[in-house]
Computed example of a mutant assay.
Amino acid sequence: MRFSNFLFPESREPESDARVIAECIAEAQLCDALGVEVLWLAEHHFDGNCAYVDPTTFAAAVLAATTRLKVGFAVAQVSLHHPVRLAEQIALLDNLGQGRLIVGLGRGTAYNVYEYQGYGIDWQEAQARYEEAEAIMLKAWNSPSGFEHKGKFWDLKAPRLRPACYTTPHPVVLRAASSEEGALHLARRGLPFMMNVQSLEATRHRLSAYRAELAASGHDEATIARCMDESWVWRNVVVAETDAEAARIGIPAFEAMQQHRREMREKVYAEQGIRMVQEVVPPARVQLDHALIHGSPATVAARMAEIDRTGVGGVICSFRLGPMSAEATRESIRLFMTRVAPEFQGGHAAAAE
């Protein structure tokens, strides 16, 4: 099992933006030095929940500041972008990183209506816009003579895309699946996926169903193995020397992060009466027991071994949670990469043998 860092930094007030963004570059360089496989970048707008906001622009800075680290999107909110412009930007990034780019694509947030409103897009069109935009992007990368497209949202006549992608025919593309049906849809297409934060039980069930759907759709064992190996699950992670110290640092930071992420959403609901998702039961992503892995290196390794046994290829670890300091985050990453990750060298944890 492989490990990566989801760089998802909160900045609570505009005066902190420059400092947090600079700290993100330093965190990327630390990950590069410690052997983290991928640095994932988010995309969120207007609320300070992701300080650098734009993963395509920020990816260029990260690629320039590192030498080995892969940079991925988790995910680019495709419905907010013009697909040809985004395809061009990704092709440029692929050249800047000489193949170190992973293109995670998704429709956009399922919770924050203000992100669509700020871009003048009807949130109810997000899925359809995403599907059409992804098809356009793939066509742009795969059409050396240019292409035409007539659809619901775009009417295009484009010459050949320049620059051409560094990776032939284009960088690795991953899709987010926030529901079981979304994961099964990708299984039918023989494609890997990124799973949002879920309980261990839900993770086991969804990956088992995904594997079964791959087989039922006629994909061979090699394809099934590849899809499992290239799929990722997401957890928030805090490592300290002791369980008590990790709880002292991690639990308040996690709870503050969830509160901050709710605030703008609730403000819009109070003012406009719009809520994209009605959640009767709090989802796993906000439940401490399911969403946060915290403890000493031994405790965290044991929790990671449970995930390893699901057969998934990698874990997307969010290390910087809410108001957590850059110093605490760096120590957590250092402990994870020097004392947790080595337990999984060779593909499986010793505890899982």
Rank of each mutant, 00 (worst) to 15 (best):
R248Y: 15
E255S: 08
G48R: 11
N112M: 06
T310H: 10
D155L: 04
K150T: 14
E43L: 03
A176N: 01
I102M: 08
L174C: 08
P9I: 13
S11V: 03
D54P: 01
A164S: 13
Q127W: 15
D32N: 12
W40M: 03
N196G: 08
G108H: 05
R19W: 07
W232P: 01
I90W: 00
R248W: 13
W154M: 02
A270F: 11
L186W: 06
D243N: 15
Q89Y: 09
C31I: 04
T56R: 03
V237Y: 15
V38P: 00
R189L: 15
C317V: 10
K70N: 14
R204P: 13
A74K: 06
E15C: 05
A76N: 05
Q259A: 11
P283Y: 06
Y116H: 06
M228D: 07
M195N: 04
I333Q: 04
R262S: 10
R189N: 14
E245K: 09
W141P: 02
W232V: 00
M257S: 11
L96E: 14
L214A: 05
T203N: 09
R339K: 10
V268A: 05
M337P: 01
Q124P: 02
H185I: 14
A26K: 03
P192W: 09
S231F: 00
R330F: 00
V300L: 03
Q287E: 08
L335Y: 06
R320M: 14
A298P: 12
S16T: 08
A202Y: 02
A247K: 02
K70V: 03
R68Y: 02
Q278V: 09
A60E: 04
L7R: 03
H219S: 08
A74C: 09
I307S: 07
P297A: 10
C227Y: 02
H294P: 02
H348I: 08
S145G: 13
F344C: 12
S332T: 09
A76F: 09
V78Y: 08
K139D: 05
S178E: 04
E131T: 07
D243W: 14
A28N: 06
A26P: 07
L86K: 05
S16H: 03
I224V: 10
A225T: 14
D229S: 07
V197A: 04
Q198Y: 15
L92F: 14
A22E: 12
G295S: 15
R339H: 15
V312Q: 11
W154R: 09
L184M: 10
L335T: 08
G322L: 00
A291S: 12
S325F: 09
E15I: 09
G151I: 04
A215R: 10
V53K: 12
Y52N: 08
V280L: 13
S199Q: 13
H290V: 03
E132H: 05
V84W: 10
P159K: 10
I249F: 00
A301Y: 01
S199R: 11
V197C: 07
G151T: 06
I136Q: 01
V300W: 01
M264S: 13
G146P: 13
F58R: 06
I249W: 00
F73L: 01
A270R: 14
D229P: 00
C165T: 11
L69Y: 03
S145Y: 07
I293L: 11
L288G: 07
V36R: 04
L174W: 03
Q29M: 13
L200T: 05
R206N: 15
S4T: 09
A164R: 14
A302W: 03
G120R: 13
G99N: 11
A291D: 10
K139E: 13
